[in-house]
Amino acid sequence: MTKLLDAPQRPARSGGPAGPAQRQGLARSIRSLLTSPKYGPVIVTAVLFVAVFVIGGVRYRGFFSGQVFLNLLVDNSYLIVLAVGMTFVILTGGIDLSVGAVVALSGMIAASLLQSGWSPGVVIPLILVLTSVLGLLVGLMIHVFKVQPFIATLAAMFLARGLCYVISQNSISITDETFVQLAVARIPLGGGMSITPSVIIAVVVVAVAVWVLHATRFGRTVYAIGGGEQSGLLMGLPVARTKVLVYVISGFCSGLAGVLFTFYTLSGYPLTAIGTELDAIAAVVIGGTLLTGGYGFVLGSVLGVLVLGVIQTIITFEGTLSSWWTKIFIGALLLVFIILQKVLTARRR
C-alpha cells in the first residue's frame, strides 16, 4: 500500500531541480514515515532516547561517557532478553504476564541446585528446558483450549511464584565458583570500557531473534498471525504451531533472562522480579510494537529497554529522586506510547 502511494513522489525527489518541490517531497516522506504505525513509534523512541541521553549529559558530570552507555546494557541485559521473548508474543497479539515470576523461578532453581552441588553446566540447560516446557504448556492451553492469553499466563505466573516459595522462602546465595566467575567477569573493550558476558548473550539472542523474525518462514507467520489470524489460516500458514511456539520462545527467553538476572544478583529470592512483566511489556510497547500485534521490531524493543534504562540511570544520577519514581515514569511513558499508537493506527484507518 505505502509503496503505491509513495511511488509518484519519487521521481520528483531524485530527478527534479533542487527547490521547494524537493523539500516538500522530503518533508512529506518524513511525515509519512513518522505517522506510519510501523516506523513512527520506533523513530519517536529513538529520538527520545537520544534526547534523554543528551539531557543527562548536559545536566550531570560524567554522564556522557561510553561506560555509562555500556552499563545500560550490563544492567539491563536480562530485560533485553525478556523483551525479545515478549516481542514475539505481542507480535501475535498475545501477552505473557508470567515472565517476572519465571525469572524468579529460574533464579531459585539455579540457586538451590547449585547449593546442593550440581554443576552449572547441567543446571543452566535444565532451567532453559523447564521454562520452555512451561511455555509450551501455556501455549497449548491458549491454542487448544482457547483460554485467553492473559489468564493462561496469569495461571503460569501463580504456578511459578508458588514453586519459588516451595523451593525456599528465603534468599539463597550462590557460591559456586564457575557461576561467580561468570558473574564478575568483565570483557575489556579498550579505553577503560568493559562489558559482561551477559551482554554478549543478550546481543546474540537479539541477533538470532532478528534473523528469525525477518528471514524465516516462522517469523513471517508470526507477523501474519498478528495481522489477522483468520487470514493466516486461510493462507494455509501453520498458525497452530506458530502460536504455541511463540510462548515456548517466551518461556525460553524468561528462563535465560532468569539466569542472566542470577549472574547479576548472585542469589535466588522468591519475591524478586515482581513487576518485571510490566517493564518488559513497557519496553516492547515503547519500542513500537503494536499491542494488537502485526507491527514491530525486536530492535525497537531493545531501544525501549535502553530508554527505560536511561531513565533509571538519570534517577540514580539525580540522587534526590526516590527510586519508586521509576515505576511512575515507566507507567506514564507506557501510557504516552499507547496513546501514540492509537492515534497513528486511527489515522491510517
Binding site: A155, F158, L159, R161, G162, L163, Y165, V166, Q169
Partner: peptide, 11 residues
Amino acid sequence: IATMVFKAAVV
C-alpha cells in the same frame, strides 16, 4: 507456602 501452586492448579 504451597497455596499459590494450589491456586494455580485450580484456576
